[in-house]
Simulated scan of single mutants.
Amino acid sequence: MPGQEKQVSKLRRPFVVAGAVVGALLSAWYLYRNFGSSAAAADPVWTRFVNVALIMFVAIYLANLLRRGVESFRKH
């Protein structure tokens, strides 16, 4: 209904924060491996930027899906 406020889950913030932390760690690992690899040429800057953005997006998205699964499991 238009007059009702949508209820926000209490688990939303912890899962998003956990997803962001995991994404930051994976991004740091990716950048370390990219810069530390002397055998092959490093990725261009735009590729690194896109890859870090994708890593962050996927980590937060998967954390949100996991939260929904946990909430569904807790309801039953």
Rank of each mutant, 00 (worst) to 15 (best):
T47W: 15
Y30D: 03
Y32H: 06
V8P: 13
Y61L: 01
K75N: 06
P44R: 10
Y30P: 12
P14N: 14
L66R: 02
L66Y: 00
A41S: 07
F73G: 01
V50R: 08
F15R: 13
G3D: 14
S37Y: 15
V52C: 12
Y30L: 05
G3R: 14
I60L: 12
P14C: 08
R12Q: 05
A24V: 06
L31C: 05
L65T: 00
L54M: 10
V22H: 00
L54F: 10
R67P: 09
I60E: 13
G19L: 09
M1H: 14
L26G: 02
K6D: 06
L25A: 01
A42D: 13
S9L: 08
R48E: 08
R12G: 08
I55G: 00
G69Q: 06
I55S: 00
W46T: 12
D43K: 07
A53G: 03
S72M: 07
S27C: 09
V17C: 05
L66D: 02
R74I: 11
V70C: 06
N51K: 11
F35S: 12
E71V: 15
Q7I: 03
A40K: 15
K75V: 00
V52G: 14
E5A: 07
M56A: 00
S9T: 13
V17F: 11
I60C: 07
P44E: 13
Y30A: 07
P44F: 05
A24R: 13
V22G: 00
K75P: 00
G23M: 04
R68Y: 01
P2M: 11
R48W: 04
V21C: 04
A41G: 06
A39Y: 06
R33M: 09
L25C: 07
M56V: 06
F49R: 01
A39F: 10
A42N: 05
T47Y: 15
L11V: 10
R33E: 05
G36Y: 15
N51M: 09
R48T: 02
L54Q: 11
A42I: 03
R74E: 07
G69R: 14
V17H: 09
F15Q: 06
Y30C: 04
N51A: 03
V45R: 13
A24E: 05
V17P: 04
F35Q: 13
K6N: 06
E5Y: 03
A39C: 03
V58N: 09
K10W: 10
R67E: 08
R13I: 11
V21K: 13
S9F: 10
A59Y: 09
N34E: 10
Y30K: 01
V45C: 04
P44L: 14
F57Q: 09
A59S: 08
W46K: 14
A24L: 14
V8N: 13
M56L: 10
V22Q: 01
Y61C: 01
R67T: 08
N34D: 14
Q7S: 07
Q7K: 02
P2L: 04
L31A: 12
